[in-house]
């Protein structure tokens, strides 16, 4: 919902850039490259002609088809992850000019309106690099397993419809359910950091996305059957208590999911759950 009532300064700057963008210009892409895990990184620059409406993806496509650096050296095409190109699959997330976001919706006009302006592309830093701008985000999905982010149905049999749900509850859940597992909230989170050792995943910070998904399923009548198990997972090391309340997650979420509200709501649930457990002697 962006009826352009209140723009943050960065967005206002982007809007101004878009208006002043020069037609037929060339933009420099500085790309952080890496051949593979354990290999050193290096920077390469590419000159890319920018047609109207170009985005980072279309420029990377240009580089893939013509892998020649600014110095005129032939190089390998830049590797990156992408999918839908309409900001619903989450694949093409990377760090652009220092901020994490989807590259498909990053319009060049917004960032580099003048001839010779520079766009800096880096892979996300919180996940191991596979190659160039492509990172391995399996930990993100693993963390969804930690909170059992599913409704425990009795199979695909014909058992009638699901629970009746108020439009308000649907509205809340739909918003949470728009999370596309892109990892922006994790990249910007000071508490979520690179962890290559899979054995440590279960005790490292779980991330805003998983906390919010736990809330999504706890809010569903059938999903709530696993509520206690989800709260137990969130109480443990690397759970919700490891959140440092920097609240960057909600600022960078491309889907505007109220992640900090989810964190607070689950904080309350965990508080009550902990007290109950204490008095039950568990």
């Amino acid at each position: 919902m962006s009826t352009a009532t209140k723009l943050d300064p960065a967005a206002a700057q982007r809007a101004a850039n878009r208006k002043s963008a020069k037609a037929g210009r060339t933009v420099i892409f500085r790309v952080k490259r890496c051949e593979g895990p354990g290999k050193p990184s290096r920077w390469e620059e590419f000159k890319v002609p920018v047609p109207p409406g170009a985005n980072v993806i279309s420029c990377l496509q240009h580089i893939a088809a013509n892998p020649v650096t600014t110095q005129g050296a032939r190089t390998t095409p830049v590797v990156w992850d992408s999918g839908c190109l309409e900001e619903v699959c989450g694949a093409c997330t990377m760090v652009i000019n220092g901020r994490v976001r989807q590259s498909c919706s990053a319009l060049i006009d917004d960032y580099a309106p003048q001839e010779g302006d520079v766009m800096v592309l880096e892979p996300m830093s919180k996940f191991p690099v596979v190659r160039d701008l492509w990172v391995d985000r399996s930990r993100l999905f693993h963390n969804l397993q930690r909170v059992k982010a599913w409704v425990p149905i009795d199979g695909t049999y014909d058992l009638g419809s699901g629970p009746i749900e108020s439009p308000a509850s649907q509205g809340t859940r739909y918003k949470l359910s728009e999370c596309m597992s892109c990892g922006c909230c994790l990249e910007a989170c000071p508490q979520f950091n690179l962890e290559e050792d899979k054995a440590a995943w279960d005790t490292s910070f779980i991330g805003a996305h998983a906390i919010s998904q736990a809330r999504l399923f706890n809010e569903h009548a059938t999903g709530a059957i696993l509520k206690d198990e989800r709260l137990d997972a969130l109480m443990g090391q690397g759970g919700i208590n490891d959140c440092g309340n920097a609240q960057n997650c909600v600022k960078v979420c491309p889907k505007h999911i109220p992640l900090t509200e989810s964190i607070a709501a689950m904080g309350r649930a965990v508080t009550i759950h902990g007290i109950k457990k204490f008095f039950r002697g568990e």
Partner: peptide, 24 residues
């Protein structure tokens, strides 16, 4: 011990909340 688990990043994400996290 808890502070050790985080790595500040106000350089890239200079939001108020992030500064408060760091200042804390």
């Amino acid at each position: 011990y808890y502070a050790k688990t985080g790595i500040t990043n106000t350089g890239s994400y200079s939001f108020g909340g992030n500064w408060r996290y760091r200042l804390q």
